[in-house]
Each structure stands twice: as C-alpha cells, then as structure tokens.
Amino acid sequence: MSLQGQRIVVIGGTSGIGLAVAEAAAREGAEVVVASRRQESVDAALTRLPRGAEGHVLDATDEDAVRGFFGRIGEFDHLVYTAGESLLLESLAESDLTRARRFLDTRLWGAYTAVKHGAPSIRKGGSVVLTTGTGGRRPMRGATVAASLCGAMESLTRALALELAPLRVNVVSPGVVRTELWRDLPEVERDGLFESSAASLPVGRVGESADVAEAYLYLMRGGYSTGSVVVVDGGGTLV
C-alpha cells in the first residue's frame, strides 16, 4: 500500500519524530499538514517540507482550539500525534506536580482530545497513530511520570481501537532516540546517556528520528493492524 495522494495530519509535526514522519510521508507523495504550539517552529518545518504542505499553530491542550482546527482542515486520511513537552525526569520526592500535570496534559490528554475531534474527519480506510515509549515497560529511575504516561498510552490505544472500529488505532513506542525530547538534560549528561545506551544496545547505536518514522508509515499503510504497539528501540527492552 502507498501513501501517494493521501492527506496526513501530524500534530507535533514540526520537530523530532513528528517532522521525520511528515518528511517521510511527503516523499511517498502524501499531502502533509503539520501543527504545533509555536509559529516559529511551524515556519521552520515548512522550509523542510515540499511545496503544498500546510502548517498550523495549535495548542493541543486547548479543546476549543483543537475542535476548531479539525473543523477548518476538513477530511483527511491519517492522524499522527507526536506532540509533547521534553522528557520529565525527577524523583518522586522532588516532583513538581504542576509540571507533571502539564506533561500529561500535552502527551495524554492532548492525544485524547485530538482523536476525539479528529476521528470524525478521517476517511474510510484511514488510521490514527499515537506515540508512547518503552519507559512503561522498562522504567528508569526518576521516570515515574513518564512511565505512567507510557502505560496509559498503550491502554488508550487498545480502548480506542475497539471504540472507533473499523478506524484503526495504533501506537509507536520508541526507545532512546536522539531528539529534542532530551533537551532539558545538561549536554554532558545527555551525551553520556547516548554513549552508554549505544554501548548497551544490540544494534550498537541510539536511534534517529528517521528510524522511528518508518514505524508510523508502516502502521498507516498496514490495513490489518489495529490496537498494536510497535516497539522501535534497537533491542533496548531485551538487555
């Protein structure tokens, strides 16, 4: 199956994995629509995407804004949700609950809201692809909020796949990938994490956004996949 001529909406599609998905889909001839919170991010993404790509500013935590966004863009074929704050790493004792709620608002409730208002506009044969992470299966210290999110996203995906059938709903679970997700870590710590992860992984390196984007394309193309969690982690859950 090809994505040629299909219309794909990527919320969070202006950087990292989301932008890689938009770029890969566009190379296959898809019409892409990207959205994120900041105008400068949208403008920068459009310089990397082919002519005809659309970009919109959207706060995924604002339900009225999300409802209006889908009302404006009309029908499409696939919804991809990759939006989120940078990774939240802090111990339970030192946790900031306001920040934790904001993290979940964007990544969990933002996805929920996008599917609620976007699903009615998805054409027959289309799909939704959400984003989680391997932290729910193999959490690290200081990742209680992130691990909770990952578990919730997997459960949400399975529930949506049943409720919205025959619309297909799947989720991609990346491992350690070199993206803006880690931007709040000091550079020395970030480089150390990538180096140690690469040394421990069976593939011998950390992932890149383009590696993970292939999983989203597979799930959009694959008409027999729904309720699935596709792990792309270089073998990280094995070691």
Rank of each mutant, 00 (worst) to 15 (best):
199 A>F: 05
117 H>V: 13
8 I>Y: 06
90 E>A: 14
174 P>Y: 06
72 R>K: 15
98 T>Q: 13
85 E>K: 14
20 A>G: 00
99 R>C: 10
236 G>V: 07
171 V>P: 13
108 L>S: 10
9 V>E: 09
71 G>H: 11
56 H>L: 14
175 G>Y: 03
206 V>Q: 06
137 R>F: 05
197 S>G: 03
16 G>W: 13
188 V>W: 10
16 G>E: 04
227 G>D: 00
40 E>Q: 12
90 E>N: 14
233 D>Q: 03
172 V>R: 10
45 A>W: 04
85 E>S: 14
190 R>S: 02
225 S>W: 13
15 S>A: 15
151 G>Q: 03
165 A>F: 08
12 G>Y: 00
7 R>G: 05
34 V>C: 12
170 N>K: 04
123 R>C: 06
95 S>P: 02
31 E>C: 07
156 L>Y: 11
222 G>Q: 14
109 W>K: 00
179 T>Q: 01
106 T>A: 14
13 G>W: 15
68 G>E: 14
10 V>T: 04
129 V>S: 03
120 P>S: 11
117 H>D: 06
123 R>A: 10
202 P>G: 01
95 S>N: 12
103 F>C: 07
139 P>K: 09
232 V>Q: 08
3 L>N: 03
128 V>Y: 01
153 M>Y: 11
202 P>I: 00
53 A>C: 09
155 S>C: 10
156 L>Q: 01
152 A>I: 07
168 R>D: 04
69 F>E: 12
177 V>P: 01
199 A>M: 08
233 D>T: 00
156 L>N: 00
119 A>S: 15
96 D>V: 05
214 E>T: 11
96 D>Y: 09
171 V>E: 08
141 R>H: 12
153 M>W: 08
138 R>P: 04
27 R>T: 11
81 Y>M: 03
174 P>S: 06
99 R>P: 13
55 G>V: 11
184 D>P: 05
213 A>Y: 03
138 R>G: 07
223 G>H: 14
211 D>Y: 02
194 F>P: 00
113 T>L: 13
196 S>W: 12
2 S>N: 02
124 K>L: 09
52 G>I: 15
161 A>L: 09
107 R>I: 11
179 T>P: 02
134 T>D: 04
19 L>E: 03
30 A>N: 05
239 V>A: 11
97 L>V: 03
97 L>C: 10
44 A>I: 08
154 E>D: 11
203 V>N: 13
18 G>D: 03
159 A>Q: 04
10 V>F: 12
166 P>A: 07
115 V>Q: 01
219 L>N: 13
30 A>F: 14
217 L>T: 06
203 V>G: 09
116 K>M: 00
44 A>S: 13
119 A>H: 06
50 P>L: 10
200 S>T: 11
220 M>L: 07
177 V>D: 03
58 L>I: 14
3 L>E: 02
28 E>V: 10
228 S>G: 10
44 A>N: 07
56 H>P: 10
121 S>M: 13
140 M>E: 14
16 G>L: 08
12 G>L: 02
86 S>F: 02
169 V>Y: 00
182 W>F: 05
67 R>L: 14
147 A>I: 09
198 A>N: 02
100 A>L: 05
121 S>K: 15
231 V>T: 15
101 R>W: 13
75 E>K: 09
196 S>A: 15
7 R>T: 15
214 E>W: 10
88 L>M: 14
6 Q>R: 15
82 T>M: 04
84 G>L: 06
54 E>T: 07
204 G>H: 10
145 V>I: 15
154 E>Y: 07
